[in-house]
């Protein structure tokens, strides 16, 4: 279980708190939707859970142990903007190889055809690039996936395609997914058939019980 306990975060000792006392957890194979008003610190929370930031207070545990600081992190974060999460000087094939090379059939399912491999990120559309960014983390070493507005920049068709593949992957490998979004119909849809835990505008106390 991926668990964030009593998480507090701020960028500097004199700056205001961005995240105040949040507790939440994701079980393997579970899809949790997180929808909250701006100022809740959703994005920061995602970064804390994936180990991009260290909480000022509280801790993030994976199966009762702290997140590993070395090696492939079992908790992976997918950003909203794929342009920033790939090295603009690398070709797609190299970008895909940086983590654990993705399995062939995920590439096919995501519509990443061989012609894309030799191109540079700026030669791809946003939708294609986001699919590449997602393919990078669809491997057996990913145990939890945090999707921060993963499809907010994409058209409905690409959104449906990406979520179909990601949910299939999560189901097959028993991966826990936390989806952060403003899109209520989307969260309702993707949490269907899984343990639904839609945290809409909820207060921290009710999260603690989860």
């Amino acid at each position: 279980m991926l668990k964030g306990e009593g998480l507090w975060f701020r960028y500097g000792a004199r700056l205001p708190w961005v995240v105040r006392d949040r507790t939440l957890s994701v079980l393997p194979g579970e899809v949790v939707g997180l929808m909250a008003p701006s100022g809740y610190g959703k994005t920061t929370l995602g970064k804390l859970l994936a180990g991009y930031l260290m909480p000022t207070r509280g801790r993030v545990t994976l199966n009762k142990q702290l997140l590993p600081s070395r090696g492939y992190c079992p908790v992976q974060l997918v950003f909203q903007n794929p342009e920033l999460s790939v090295n603009p000087r690398w070709r797609i094939a190299r970008i895909l190889r940086e983590g654990h090379p993705p399995q062939r059939h995920y590439l096919d399912a995501l519509g990443i055809y061989p012609g894309l491999m030799t191109r540079y990120p700026h030669e791809l559309s946003g939708g294609e690039l986001q699919r590449v960014a997602i393919a990078r983390v669809l491997n057996r070493n990913t145990r939890y996936l945090i999707a921060d507005e993963m499809t907010a920049m994409l058209d409905a068709n690409t959104q449906a395609l990406i979520w179909k593949v990601v949910l299939e992957f999560a189901c097959q490998h028993h991966v826990g997914v936390m989806a952060i979004s403003h899109d209520r119909p989307l969260l309702t849809r993707i949490c269907q058939g899984h343990t639904i835990k839609l945290l809409i505008d909820s207060i921290p106390a009710s999260l603690a019980k989860a």
Binding site: G51, Y72, C73, Q76, L77, N81, V86, G99, R136
Partner: peptide
């Protein structure tokens, strides 16, 4: 501080 370098650390590089 770019996303892709921080991601690279999370990939275990």
């Amino acid at each position: 501080s770019s996303d892709y370098v921080r991601l690279s650390y999370r990939f275990g590089r």
